[in-house]
């Protein structure tokens, strides 16, 4: 009998490999943890089709849960991951880390370019430099007031 509670706690402590300020659970990547006849099964959902971290995340999960017995990682694509699933705590941590969390729901995401506040100086005059950034999930911004670049976790 696997101690599911302990496994769940262990899983909840795992940071995202690319944005270590938040955990995989806070990002909403972990769909399910369940016990099957063959051990533990973790269901993950990829953030973006081509996100290179997806395989790393699966490896991290397998390694972290190895002490609880055999682990299977299943990738589930549907329903598609959305930034709406990032928890409130996750959003707060992103903000503190210097990445502005999504400011609108996934439905509004495409036409709507939000007015962001600089996560460093809280200045309100900012501009988007590119809709894309250092990872598939982010876009690149600049604060006009303090001159610092920062990133925005775009809604999807």
């Amino acid at each position: 009998m696997v101690n599911l509670e302990a496994a769940r706690a262990r899983l909840a402590s795992l940071p995202d490999p690319e944005i270590p300020a938040v955990t995989l659970v806070e990002l909403g990547i972990v769909r399910d943890l369940r016990e099957t006849g063959a051990g533990l099964e973790v269901v993950l959902t990829p953030t973006y089709s081509g996100c290179p971290a997806t395989e790393l995340i699966a490896d991290d999960v397998r390694a972290a849960l190895a002490e609880f017995g055999p682990v299977t990682v299943t990738l589930q694509r549907s329903p598609a991951w959305t930034t709406d699933w990032i928890s409130a705590e996750g959003r707060e941590k992103l903000q503190r880390y210097g990445i502005v969390p999504p400011q609108c729901s996934a439905e509004q995401a495409i036409r709507f370019v939000p007015q962001l506040r600089c996560p460093r100086c809280a200045g309100g005059r900012t501009e988007q430099l590119s809709r894309f950034g250092s990872t598939p999930c982010k876009s690149t911004w600049r604060c006009i007031e303090c001159g610092e670049p920062f990133e925005y976790f775009k809604s999807i």
């Binding site: 990829p46 973006y48 089709s49 081509g50 996100c51 290179p52 694509r77 430099l129 590119s130 809709r131 894309f132 950034g133 250092s134 598939p136 690149t140």
Partner: peptide, 19 residues
């Protein structure tokens, strides 16, 4: 910025192609 954008889009498309 465009270097990142073009390669990000390529990455998405490779992900779609993989699936």
């Amino acid at each position: 910025e465009e270097d990142l954008a073009l390669t990000n889009m390529a990455l998405d498309l490779i992900g779609q192609a993989r699936a």
